[in-house]
């Protein structure tokens, strides 16, 4: 039956890889946030070619499995880099590159897509009368965005951001397929060593449940402090 001793013994070992999961999450978000703001702006402003490209990106990324995206990143980028380095005569071994970088890029692809949607829809959710009122008291376009639209959009976007963050955390578990050892990867490795896969998966399960629980509390707290004006009445 369940080998609880192995399970308990290795829990800490698996939890010790939580920092890698967090690093992947934060790294991916740091790439995704600026891009999603730019992409959302491009969508809202309807810039001829660029908007088309952004939409194409969104439909490709949302229409393919994250796992497949990861495999492709992990196969394509080293290949491109290698070609690039050889052609420019630089002597860099691509196998020296920490695979976590591929993890950042692969995970940020889908995070960017989902955040773009969040940013776009939250900005569009602000009533256009707010903008007009801003103009009529003499605010410039930039002031209208800074003072009126973005603060309101943020309160709409935060719950969606929260969901995206949780999704990103979960998708980091796929990074072990790119030889990045994070919580899931570690569980699989110890499982292989001890042949106690189920126990290790249960350990990983608890690590994720507890971690995401804390993340959600944090998000709720931030949401509350930002949205004070909507909770009125």
């Amino acid at each position: 039956m369940l080998d609880t001793k192995t399970m308990v013994d290795n829990l800490i070992d698996i939890a010790a890889y939580l920092p890698v999961t967090i690093k992947l999450t934060i790294g991916a978000l740091l790439i995704a946030i600026p891009f999603s703001i730019l992409f959302a702006a491009a969508e809202i402003k309807r810039i001829p070619v660029i908007t088309r490209l952004v939409r194409l990106y969104l439909s490709i990324i949302k229409g393919t499995p994250v796992l497949l995206q990861m495999f492709m990143i992990y196969a394509l980028i080293p290949f491109w880099l290698n070609t690039f380095f050889t052609s420019t005569g630089k002597n860099i071994n691509i196998y020296d590159i920490d695979p976590i970088w591929y993890g950042y890029i692969a995970i940020s692809l889908s995070a960017t897509a989902f955040l773009t949607e969040a940013v776009r829809s939250s900005i569009l959710s602000v009533d256009k009368g707010q903008k007009e009122a801003g103009y009529m008291v003499g605010l410039s376009k930039w002031q209208v965005y800074k003072e009126i639209i973005l603060p309101q959009a943020l309160t709409v976007a935060l719950p969606i951001f929260g969901n995206v963050i949780v999704d990103v955390i979960k998708s980091t578990s796929l990074a072990f397929t790119m030889s990045v050892t994070e919580v899931m990867g570690r569980a699989k490795i110890i499982g292989g060593m001890t042949t106690r896969y189920l126990e290790m998966y249960i350990d990983a399960f608890f690590v994720y449940v507890i971690f995401i629980f804390f993340v959600e509390i944090m998000i709720k707290y931030i949401e509350k402090s930002v949205t004070r004006y909507k909770s009125a009445r």
Partner: peptide, 27 residues
Amino acid sequence: MAFVFQNYNLFANKTVLENVMEGLTVA
């Protein structure tokens, strides 16, 4: 010029006082 809207269009993220001050301080 100033404009009074059918739907008021007060800035939802600002208090009453801030709504009235906005055009003076920021603009």
